[in-house]
Design a protein around this nucleic acid. Structure first.
Length: 163
DNA sequence: GCCAACGTTGGC
DNA sequence: GCCAACGTTGGC
């Protein structure tokens, strides 16, 4: 059977909130990806993200913004606990505990790229012109990536071996 | 810090 | 169901 769901992703994080180095320093080099409050991003996690999928870890609101490392999905979508925590910035009083509105996945760091692939560099590559992250006004924090795009970004990042 | 682009909300 | 107002994202 064909199965054309995406297997590669780009996930944005602001490095002053949670950087790739923070992920590397985390216990087991893994973390839960809480705080996603966008339906399209949630649906990607719920419907398409599977264990073993690979992730480009992108630093947004950074100087410069760009892809800094690689990660993998280690736990598939499950309820994001922060939506029920009144003290959390991500609290959502409208979410029903019996039917949680917001989900998260767990990801684990694979490795840092030998060199940062800056947004400007992504934009300069014709092969990457369809990537969501280079589109003007694209704010989606979880985006599918094609195998071809994945390979190009890794090469730009200084990795020769296939990951 | 600015602001364009976008998603969400809520009045009607 | 339209759409103006609002809040957020994220590059610059």
């Amino acid at each position: 059977m064909t199965n054309d769901r995406p297997r590669y992703w780009l996930m944005k994080s602001e490095p002053n909130a949670f950087s790739f180095d923070d992920l590397l320093a985390a216990k087991g080099k893994r973390t839960c990806w809480d705080g996603i409050r966008n339906y399209q991003a949630r649906n990607f996690m719920r419907d398409d993200m599977r264990k073993g999928d690979r992730v480009l870890y992108y630093h947004s609101n950074a100087k410069p913004p760009g892809v800094v490392g690689l990660a993998e999905v280690v736990k598939e979508a499950y309820p994001d606990h922060t939506q029920f925590d009144p003290a959390s910035h991500y609290h959502d009083p409208q979410s029903d505990p019996a039917d949680p509105r917001w989900l998260m996945v767990d990801i684990k760091a694979l490795r840092k790229l030998p060199r940062l692939v800056e947004l400007d560099e992504l934009k300069s590559r014709p092969e990457l012109s369809e990537m969501a992250v280079v589109q003007r006004g694209q704010r989606l924090s979880i985006q599918p990536v094609t195998p071809e795009e994945w390979a190009v970004v890794l090469e730009l990042g200084g990795l020769t071996a296939k990951i």
